[in-house]
Design a protein around this nucleic acid. Structure first.
Lengths: 205, 205
DNA sequence: GTCTATAAGAAGATAGAC
DNA sequence: GTCTATCTTCTTATAGAC
């Protein structure tokens, strides 16, 4: 990683921990191991560093095509996988997914930064909501639609079924972001949630 | 409302919109209609204003004994009410509750401020989680426990049932906080959520 | 590209008159 | 309690040598 990239990396870490306004260019430079004025050879201003982070974030989000999708970014393939799964596989899948979003370094820091800065800039609210509400619900809704067609799950209201699957995952993620020591407890709840979800929506209406 | 109170009120509004670091004592004074130095006759420092807000918040939270409880702060009474309710009553109740927490001025500003500042100060994370995760789940869990005893709802896992009720409410609340124009959409989802919840957990296991 | 020195300005807080 | 004037400190950013 070159200096320009390291600046973004350290800035993201600091912004996600303390928020933009509480991080000084000096702090960033110190972490990178250079003096503050040297930063300005790489970025025009502190704001430019922030903007560059958002750019990286946007392109990464595009790559993964909607976060918290089930197994990848192709709902048809995912549905095939899902169809032949036993309950334990489903739980393992949900758990791994949850852990990925919880622990993936970039994702995690982006999410924390968005949470802190979302009310500061309206466009960030929109990014946050797309990433953590609209995209997951849309993707998973598509997937659950297929599973309902195939008779794996049963419901007359797919959007609500999707909300019932996703909302607990989202809620538990926000808990772990705030207090990592509760991860074990949340994972247990996540597991029970998916089992019960499977049970509730596997039955005939 | 005297000047001292107005300072807190305007500061809370500003903090919830822009975050502590992005609000200047001058901004607060301007809103109150006095000059910045006059603020210091009422509070020792900007931080003291913030601390005073937290104090008000804590005492208000104590009064309402756990937010997002069902009807009030007495689970036994609530359970009696719930028991005799038809589905439409349940939906109306959940809706009114949701709207209260969404629109109550103090609650709303507190919540937004906590969301922004939670990573800045660890104690605020704890306040946030107690208020929007532990307390609601604990209170509603107690209530649902009674309803299961009475046979109104059926489950072998009350904590997960509670999570299934609460997580969508929490998730939709975070959506509306970020984009008030989506309130109508969220209210519709909320209504369908409660109906479906009632249906899923009203059936025999 | 990195450094030291420093400018320019913002923001919190105080002094002292009224 | 409120004001004007001012201090102090912090923070971003630039200038210019190496």
């Amino acid at each position: 990683m070159n200096t320009k990239e390291r600046i973004l990396d350290e800035a993201l870490t600091l912004f996600s921990e303390k928020g933009y306004a509480n991080v000084y260019v000096n702090d960033i430079a110190e972490r990178v191991g250079i003096k503050a004025p040297s930063l300005y050879k790489h970025y025009k201003s502190k704001q430019a560093i922030f903007d560059a982070i958002l750019e990286v974030m946007r392109s990464r989000f595009k790559e993964t095509a909607g976060s918290l999708n089930i197994a990848g970014d192709d709902a048809d393939t995912d549905a095939d996988i899902y169809k032949t799964m036993k309950e334990t596989d489903l739980v393992a899948l949900g758990k791994n997914l949850f852990l990925y979003y919880l622990h993936d370094d970039y994702t995690k820091r982006f999410r924390k930064m968005l949470t802190i800065e979302q009310f500061h800039d309206e466009s960030l609210s929109k990014v946050y909501m797309k990433q953590y509400f609209d995209d997951p619900l849309s993707y998973q809704g598509m997937l659950f639609g297929l599973l309902v067609q195939q008779g794996v799950l049963k419901t007359d209201n797919i959007p609500i079924m999707t909300l019932h699957f996703y909302a607990p995952i989202y809620t538990l993620l926000t808990v772990c972001d705030r207090d990592p020591s509760r991860e074990e407890e949340c994972l247990k709840l996540l597991e029970e949630h998916i089992k019960k979800f499977d049970e509730l929506y596997g039955r005939d209406i």
